[in-house]
Amino acid sequence: MAADTHEADHDAEAYLKGTQEITEQVATWNLFMGLSKWGSLSIAVAVLLFTMWFMPNGGFFPALIASVVLAVAGWWFLRSKPADH
């Protein structure tokens, strides 16, 4: 016995490409990208801090200075730029 595909055919004909509301998907994507880039920067700063702090002949203050420099440089390059248009 064949399945009734009338509803599926009607839905396929009613669909117009580019008409679906995507604001929630865009917001989710922007949140994911923001968490990814800032999370990556924080992990890189933490790895640098602990690597320099616990290496042989390492110290807390040189590690802290290098980590702050990396954090500021990362913030500078990863911040949101204003839209040109």
Rank of each mutant, 00 (worst) to 15 (best):
M1A: 10
M1E: 06
A2D: 04
A2V: 03
T5H: 10
T5K: 05
H6L: 09
E7M: 09
E7S: 10
A8Y: 03
A12I: 01
E13D: 13
Y15F: 15
L16V: 15
L16R: 13
K17I: 14
K17H: 13
G18I: 03
T19R: 13
Q20N: 12
I22Y: 04
I22P: 00
T23V: 08
A27D: 12
A27E: 12
T28D: 09
T28P: 00
W29H: 12
N30S: 13
N30E: 13
F32M: 13
G34F: 08
G34D: 12
S36K: 13
S36V: 13
K37P: 08
K37I: 11
G39S: 02
S42M: 14
S42W: 11
I43N: 02
V45F: 00
A46H: 09
V47C: 07
L48G: 05
L49D: 04
F50D: 04
F50P: 00
T51I: 07
W53V: 03
W53T: 14
F54P: 07
M55L: 14
M55D: 05
M55I: 12
G58L: 06
F60P: 02
I65G: 07
A66M: 08
S67T: 08
V68N: 01
A71T: 01
A71K: 01
V72H: 00
V72P: 02
V72W: 06
V72Y: 02
V72C: 05
A73D: 02
W75I: 06
W75V: 04
W76L: 06
W76Y: 11
F77N: 01
L78N: 07
L78H: 02
L78W: 01
R79M: 05
S80R: 05
S80A: 06
P82W: 00
D84K: 11
